[in-house]
């Protein structure tokens, strides 16, 4: 039995994952490269990129404050982002601001979920 036939049978039996078709492989590689370039661009860092990131992060944190559920790591990430920007390290500052925004969004989601979820924990 040829190697390709053995592989086909093993794939059919579920023993191994099917190899990616070449078009899909190209797409995955292409996306990977694109992400790599985007990461490189982000790593370069600009004042404008940081300004946009910190604005979004602070808006999200303000929203979290309205839900009375802010997280200390968000505050720390914002503080670190401001410090990095002050040191003109906009790549690091942007990354920290984006991290802060992600944390703030999670805290908002938690607060929204707990608006009803807490009832299930009440002793009855």
């Amino acid at each position: 039995m040829k190697g390709s036939e053995i592989m086909r049978r093993r794939v059919a039996s579920g023993a191994v994952a099917a190899p990616l078709p070449s078009a899909l492989l190209c797409l995955v590689l292409g996306l990977g490269l694109a992400c790599g370039f985007a990461g490189a661009a982000r790593a370069a860092g600009t004042q404008a990129g940081y300004d946009a990131a910190i604005k979004a992060a602070e808006a999200a944190e303000h929203q979290a404050g309205l839900t009375h559920d802010q997280w200390t790591p968000t505050v720390e990430a914002l503080k670190a982002a401001h410090a990095a920007a002050a040191a003109k390290d906009f790549a690091k500052a942007t990354e920290l601001a984006q991290h802060a925004e992600a944390l703030a969004q999670l805290s908002i989601a938690q607060a929204q979920s707990e608006q009803t979820a807490w009832h299930s924990a009440v002793l009855r």
């Binding site: 944390l103 807490w118 009832h119 924990a121 009440v122 002793l123």
Partner: peptide, 22 residues
């Protein structure tokens, strides 16, 4: 006060009840 006691908060996702009840 009751809602606060049973509501999860913070990055660790704990409520007062997570520790002092469960």
């Amino acid at each position: 006060g009751k809602q606060f006691f049973y509501s999860r908060r913070g990055q660790l996702n704990f409520s007062c009840a997570s520790c002092h009840v469960q």
